[in-house]
């Protein structure tokens, strides 16, 4: 159990994966098309959240190269975090 908790993949597949899925969901509220009803940017990310999480989780769990996982995480995480930050600070 101790070795599991010390493993980087445990943290990447666990809390970091969940946080990343939340960040992407929130970021989508700002870049996803609103649609004719003005609600798609809110509703679609909420509906897709379980799929987002599952996609990220299985990729992180099955990809043997951890660096590649970190790269994809950064690719998804940074733009969405920047968008959310810009919404509040600018």
């Amino acid at each position: 159990m101790t070795s599991t908790l010390l493993s980087a993949r445990f943290w990447i597949c666990g809390p970091v994966c969940f946080l990343l899925a939340v960040i992407v969901m929130l970021g989508m509220a700002l870049w996803f098309p609103v649609g004719a009803a003005d609600i798609n940017n809110i509703v679609i990310p909420l509906v897709l959240f379980p799929a987002l999480w599952a996609g990220i989780f299985f990729f992180a769990y099955l990809e043997p190269r951890l660096m590649r996982v970190c790269f994809v995480y950064a690719l998804l995480g940074f733009p969405n975090t920047a968008l959310i930050a810009a919404r509040f600070w600018f």
Binding site: G35, D38, N40, V43, I44, V47
Partner: peptide
């Protein structure tokens, strides 16, 4: 009225099917 929003949308359909 659509289930959500002011007009029919993919989001409203998805939520109403849940």
């Amino acid at each position: 009225k659509p289930a959500l929003g002011k007009a029919p949308s993919a989001g409203a359909t998805a939520v109403s099917l849940m």
